[in-house]
Computed example of a mutant assay.
Amino acid sequence: MKRMIKQLLPAQMLSYALGVKTRLIQRRESVLDRRRYERFSAPDDSAASVRLSSRQLETQLTKDYHRVEKGLALNDPRRPFGAGVLGRLDMLLPLADARGVDDDYVAHARSARVALLDWNESGAVAAEVSPVRDDVEREIGAEGFFASRRSVRDFDPRPVPEGLLTEAVRLAINTPSVCNRQSWRVRFYADPNDRASVLSFQNGNAGIGDVPVVALVTVDARLSAGVGERNQPWIEGGLFSMSLVWALHSLGLDSCMLNMSQPNKVMTALRAKMGIPEYELIIMQIAVGYGRDGHRVARSPRRATSEVLIKQQKA
């Protein structure tokens, strides 16, 4: 039947009909993606309440305890800070107790709450929550390499050699990509005005201070095709960003990934300000430089391997 219709319709009409069909499929898939996200995702901070599901409770407590860790890892944290965080912890920790939740994230949230109160009252930084980073060499071998890389939010002002940035990109280009299309792009901003401009569109860098270099990772959407690849640019961009961070680490540089979870109007303004084409999807920013001597890092506890690794059950 389809073959007969194709034979009967003029080529121009057939092309138009296929275009309409493709657009309808794209819209349907976008709606289904949105509905799935709305169904399962946790609410924003402002909507956090005692009605959160168990996983949503974990999401909110984890977000808030990590905010304390990050805040106390800055070179000059505000004092006091975290009124909203403290309010949510005071609301949700009793909820976890009432539900009998005894997972690690609850303990981390409790210690972060104590650390926040201590900082606000006395100006003391809890080493348990935001420890001074060990001066660990980037050892040869998987364990030393992966364990020694930490997100840094307190940078030394010394400049980063352009050659190291170029070398990091050369290494990161080895990232796998769908059908080897390699759609990634990265821009490095070292000029103070450019750094300030690009960071003004990101909402998680307050307090980090003077970042020597800001990287902006994008993906060329023209190198993806069809409805089935609608999420591929974000996957490709995430893979490349992680490869770039590991490459920087291997070259002795520190970094901190800065998410770009922003509405379209912010992305549009960033494109206009920095001259980024419309077809490039903005993935994330990355702060790059050398950690200041004696800098602190967020505790950032890791999940147990047994929780992440889902083993197949034997029949």
Rank of each mutant, 00 (worst) to 15 (best):
residue 243 S to K: 00
residue 5 I to Y: 11
residue 125 V to M: 03
residue 107 A to D: 05
residue 221 A to S: 13
residue 265 K to V: 14
residue 130 S to V: 07
residue 47 A to T: 09
residue 134 D to L: 12
residue 201 F to N: 02
residue 239 L to G: 03
residue 279 Y to K: 14
residue 194 D to M: 08
residue 202 Q to H: 11
residue 248 L to H: 10
residue 153 R to D: 03
residue 298 A to S: 06
residue 39 R to L: 09
residue 256 C to Q: 02
residue 284 M to W: 08
residue 294 G to K: 05
residue 136 V to M: 03
residue 14 L to I: 09
residue 145 F to W: 10
residue 266 V to P: 01
residue 23 R to S: 15
residue 308 V to F: 07
residue 94 P to Y: 00
residue 68 V to S: 06
residue 311 K to N: 13
residue 198 V to I: 15
residue 111 S to G: 04
residue 201 F to C: 02
residue 85 V to D: 04
residue 209 G to L: 06
residue 27 R to G: 12
residue 48 A to V: 08
residue 121 E to A: 13
residue 59 T to C: 11
residue 49 S to R: 10
residue 290 Y to A: 10
residue 261 S to G: 12
residue 235 I to Q: 06
residue 239 L to H: 02
residue 218 T to N: 03
residue 259 N to L: 11
residue 15 S to E: 14
residue 29 E to I: 07
residue 150 R to V: 05
residue 217 V to H: 03
residue 198 V to Q: 11
residue 185 R to Q: 14
residue 142 A to M: 12
residue 89 L to Q: 10
residue 178 V to M: 09
residue 76 D to A: 11
residue 52 L to Y: 00
residue 90 D to I: 02
residue 308 V to C: 07
residue 39 R to I: 04
residue 195 R to V: 08
residue 241 S to G: 09
residue 27 R to D: 11
residue 135 D to V: 10
residue 100 G to A: 01
residue 49 S to Y: 14
residue 267 M to W: 03
residue 208 I to N: 01
residue 196 A to R: 13
residue 92 L to Y: 00
residue 32 L to H: 15
residue 106 V to F: 08
residue 30 S to Y: 12
residue 92 L to S: 01
residue 172 A to V: 05
residue 72 L to I: 09
residue 37 Y to G: 05
residue 280 E to V: 02
residue 223 L to K: 10
residue 149 R to Y: 09
residue 136 V to K: 04
residue 314 K to N: 12
residue 145 F to G: 08
residue 6 K to G: 15
residue 303 R to C: 03
residue 65 Y to P: 00
residue 15 S to M: 13
residue 7 Q to L: 08
residue 218 T to C: 11
residue 47 A to C: 07
residue 165 L to I: 00
residue 197 S to L: 13
residue 233 P to V: 06
residue 199 L to P: 00
residue 289 G to T: 14
residue 78 R to K: 13
residue 51 R to N: 07
residue 61 L to V: 01
residue 235 I to K: 08
residue 151 S to G: 06
residue 26 Q to K: 05
residue 269 A to S: 15
residue 232 Q to E: 14
residue 60 Q to G: 00
residue 155 F to P: 07
residue 216 L to D: 01
residue 184 W to M: 10
residue 137 E to T: 10
residue 69 E to G: 01
residue 185 R to L: 06
residue 163 G to T: 08
residue 26 Q to D: 05
residue 83 A to D: 11
residue 257 M to T: 11
residue 210 D to S: 13
residue 171 L to V: 14
residue 235 I to G: 05
residue 175 T to S: 15
residue 162 E to L: 15
residue 184 W to Q: 10
residue 143 E to Q: 14
residue 51 R to F: 04
residue 186 V to E: 14
residue 101 V to F: 01
residue 223 L to E: 10
residue 183 S to E: 04
residue 13 M to P: 00
residue 160 V to Y: 00
residue 274 M to R: 08
residue 2 K to H: 10
residue 226 G to P: 05
residue 209 G to S: 11
residue 63 K to Y: 03
residue 261 S to D: 12
residue 311 K to I: 13
residue 251 L to H: 12
residue 144 G to P: 09
residue 285 Q to A: 14
residue 112 A to L: 01
residue 239 L to M: 09
residue 299 R to S: 09
residue 231 N to I: 01
residue 269 A to V: 08
residue 156 D to V: 03
residue 45 D to C: 12
residue 176 P to C: 02
residue 281 L to V: 15
residue 127 A to I: 05
residue 211 V to L: 06
residue 183 S to P: 06
residue 37 Y to L: 13
residue 39 R to K: 12
residue 260 M to V: 06
